[in-house]
């Protein structure tokens, strides 16, 4: 599951990245969270955030529907 997810994200990323040519000169090495990416655990963070965001969107949709229902009720009064 995890590897499939990784593959899909990688393929999507590659597809979009291939559109642009990027040239980065590596004269100075700046420390980035490479270890974090190598171990693959950044995907956990991405998934957690996606879940939270989906939850919030679900809540918004629920509110939206409730309000639509109220609007209809008022209209039919």
């Amino acid at each position: 599951m995890n590897s499939l997810y990784k593959k899909i994200v990688t393929v999507l990323g590659m597809l979009i990245l291939s559109v642009t040519a990027f040239a980065q000169d590596k004269c100075e090495r700046v420390e980035m969270a490479e270890g974090l990416y190598q171990s693959g655990k950044i995907y956990v963070v991405v998934t957690v955030l996606s879940i939270i965001f989906t939850g919030i969107v679900g809540y918004l949709i629920m509110l939206d529907r409730k309000i639509s229902k109220l609007e209809k009720e008022i209209k039919n009064k």
């Binding site: 994200v9 980035m32 969270a33 950044i42 965001f53």
Partner: peptide, 29 residues
């Protein structure tokens, strides 16, 4: 447009963490 909003932000969350970013001193990740 609500669907576009959700898809775009979801894309931001995924691509925002996984895509390559320029390495800058002080800023890092």
């Amino acid at each position: 447009w609500k669907i576009i909003a959700v898809l775009f932000v979801l894309y931001t969350i995924i691509a925002g963490f996984l895509f390559k970013v320029p390495a800058q001193p002080i800023l890092h990740e």
